[in-house]
Computed example of a mutant assay.
Amino acid sequence: MNDASSARRLLEYMRAWQKIPASGSPATVRASAGGDWWTPSVDAVRCAVEVEELVEALDDSDLRDGFETIRAHIRDAVFSSKWQLDSSGQAREIIPRSALGTLAVVVSALEGRALLMEKTSEFTELREFLLVIREQLVSADLPEETREYLLVLVSHLEQALAEAAFRGMADVAACADQLAGALTRLFVQFDSDDANKASGLVKKLVRKVSNFVNSPFMQAAIGSYVGTVTGQITTG
Rank of each mutant, 00 (worst) to 15 (best):
67 F>S: 00
188 V>K: 10
120 T>E: 14
121 S>V: 13
130 L>Q: 13
167 R>H: 12
70 I>C: 02
101 G>Q: 13
91 A>K: 00
194 D>S: 10
173 A>H: 14
151 L>F: 00
124 T>S: 15
193 D>K: 12
105 V>G: 10
69 T>R: 08
108 S>G: 03
123 F>W: 11
149 Y>F: 08
125 E>T: 14
176 A>H: 01
62 D>E: 12
140 A>I: 08
172 V>D: 03
59 D>K: 15
95 I>N: 12
104 A>C: 11
83 W>G: 12
72 A>I: 02
63 L>S: 02
124 T>V: 15
114 A>P: 12
62 D>V: 00
56 E>D: 11
136 Q>K: 04
167 R>I: 14
126 L>R: 04
178 Q>F: 09
93 E>S: 12
150 L>R: 01
182 A>Q: 04
193 D>G: 12
124 T>K: 14
138 V>I: 13
70 I>T: 03
164 A>V: 06
99 A>L: 05
71 R>H: 07
115 L>N: 02
96 P>Y: 07
109 A>H: 06
131 L>F: 08
106 V>L: 13
107 V>T: 10
182 A>P: 03
109 A>T: 06
70 I>F: 05
57 A>C: 10
133 I>M: 11
65 D>Q: 14
173 A>D: 09
134 R>V: 04
179 L>R: 00
66 G>S: 09
93 E>Y: 02
143 P>T: 01
152 V>D: 13
176 A>Y: 05
